[in-house]
Structures are given as C-alpha cells and as structure tokens.
C-alpha cells in the first residue's frame, strides 16, 4: 500500500511502550520461534517483491500442514466463548476455550450429524471434462507394467454416511504465514487452507474456519506482500494494543517479557481468531 511505502522503517525499539517491533526485532523473534518449534521456517518469497528492510532470506515465516479438524460452526455449539476485554472498548476479541479431547470428540460427531455438513459440498473438479476425456495418456506411460510403484490410499479421519454422495470428510490443513507489516510495525498473519487432496479451499470455505465474530471484520482477504495472490489475513490494526496489554499483564505479575517471545505471544492471540486451526503453541512463554 502507499501508506506502507511512505512509513519510515521503525529503527528504535518501541516494543515495551507501544507493542510494536522493528524489522530487526521481527527477525530476532522469528529466529527464536524457529528455535522453539522447527516447523516454522524463513522464506524468501518472490524475488521481485523483496523488502529491503529485511534480510533477503528472512522475509517472512511459514509453517505448513497445520491440521484443522472441524469447522467453526461445529465448534460454536460445543465450545465456550469468552470475550476478551478490548482495549478500546469496541468489538472485542472472541476466544474459544476448548481442549483437545473436546476437539477429537467433535471430529467424531461430524460423522453423525450430516445436517451440519450441508454446506460442505462435494468437490466438483474437472470442469472441463470434455478436454480431459479426449486426452488418454495411458498410451504414453509404462507405469502399468511398473511393479515398483506403491499405491497409497489416504486414511480417512472421519467419515460421513451420506447415502447420496458417500463422501469422506478428511482433515483440512492450513499454511500459516507471518509477515512483517511495516505500516503497523507488527507481525501480520496470513493463512491459506487446503482440503484433504491439498486443493486450495475457496474463500467461503476458509471463512468457515474463522471465528464468525471475526469473519470479514478482523479477518479479511488481502494480497500477500511477498507472494502476490490474496489470502485470508488477520488485520493487524489492533495487534500492537493487544501486545501492550499482554505486556502490562505480565509486568503486573512481576514478569518482563522479552522481545524474543513476541511471536509466540502473537500466535497465542491470533489463535482466538482461527480457533479450529490447531498449530503447536504449547510452548509456555518464558519470562525474565
């Protein structure tokens, strides 16, 4: 955005007073996050979109294949919601408290309650069936006589006995991206979801996994600054205030949070926006 281009890069640390971080602190916190949980990794992104204020090979963070066992709709009638007091007194963040047990039970529940599955349509691939049929590649290939190929059948997580489609509901997965937002001087979470066949979900399907109170408000559809196409994004306008609040709570308790833990705390509060996306955040925040 233009605003982002014109905003000077934050040079001095304002982490404690403002909850904002510099690009250097973003890199340090990212390195720490990777150290704690190695599934996160630094990415370069598109060469044409490199931001000069970040190291070339540390432009943004990604973790892939995060499971998402069920839809928010299914969660909302079992989960306990609570509203986190908002610093500005506007619409607060809604968090969902559930535990893993609850989650697994719910995955099983999906098998029984097909009425809730109504809007998960069977995929209609191959729109251009005509094109597909005309092309017979079998003749090009010798796979048919190759005994060394192992056939892998996907293992279903939960099944639904829908007599019409007899479709199998598998786990959706999400890739999470943490980008540095220069305008808000905070991390900015992007996410993209896939179905069981690793086909990208459409936007409406992805909104099913966003807390309904946040869908289209806190969570929007935005162009990824390092990749190009739009993805779901948790809007960063309130991040610094929330971070500040976390810091205050920690300090009142006699602890001081280090900037290294910034992204770990960040992930804890964005979890409330995407409650069904179950990434590993079991790490306790180290205080000094």
């Amino acid at each position: 955005s233009v605003a982002e281009q014109l905003t000077p890069v934050l040079r001095e640390s304002k982490f404690k007073e403002s909850g904002r971080i510099t690009p250097e602190e973003f890199v340090a916190a990212g390195d720490h996050l990777i150290f704690i949980s190695p599934t996160w990794q630094w990415m370069t992104g598109d060469e044409a979109k490199i931001k000069s204020y970040l190291p070339r090979d540390k432009q943004f963070l990604v973790t892939k294949n995060v499971p998402c066992l069920r839809r928010c709709k299914q969660m909302e009638f079992t989960g306990v919601e609570k509203i986190v007091e908002d610093v500005e007194g506007e619409d607060g963040w809604v968090t969902h408290e559930t535990d893993d047990m609850n989650l697994n039970e719910c995955a099983e529940e999906m098998t029984l309650d097909s009425s809730k599955m109504d809007d998960i349509e069977p995929k209609n691939e191959d729109e251009d069936d005509d094109d597909q049929e005309a092309l017979d590649m079998e003749e090009f290939d010798v796979d048919n006589v190759d005994p060394s190929v192992a056939i892998i059948k996907p293992t279903p997580i939960a099944t639904t006995k829908d007599s019409e489609t007899d479709s199998v509901i598998h786990t959706r997965t999400y890739d999470l991206h943490i980008v540095y937002n220069k305008y808000y001087q905070t991390p900015h979470l992007f996410l993209i979801g896939y179905d069981e066949n690793r086909q990208v979900l459409n936007i409406d399907q992805m909104y099913e996994d966003v807390s309904q109170d946040n869908a289209k408000k806190t969570v929007t559809y935005e162009a990824h600054p390092h990749l190009g196409p739009s993805m779901l994004a948790v809007h960063p306008c309130k991040h610094s205030d929330l971070m500040k609040k976390f810091l205050q709570i920690a300090e009142e308790g006699g602890n001081e949070l280090s900037v290294y833990s910034y992204l770990i705390i960040f992930l804890k509060f964005v979890q409330s926006v995407i409650p069904t996306v179950n990434y590993d955040f079991s790490q306790t925040i180290k205080t000094t």
Binding site: I34, T44, G45, E47, G228
Partner: peptide
C-alpha cells in the same frame, strides 16, 4: 510456488 521462478533460488532451512 512463486519462488520456483527465482533466479537465485534458496530454499528454507528444512527443505
């Protein structure tokens, strides 16, 4: 992904 086209390709640490 889009980085597949990068001229100076460098992959992430675990890849």
């Amino acid at each position: 992904d889009c980085t597949s086209f990068n001229s100076n390709f460098k992959t992430a640490k675990n890849n």
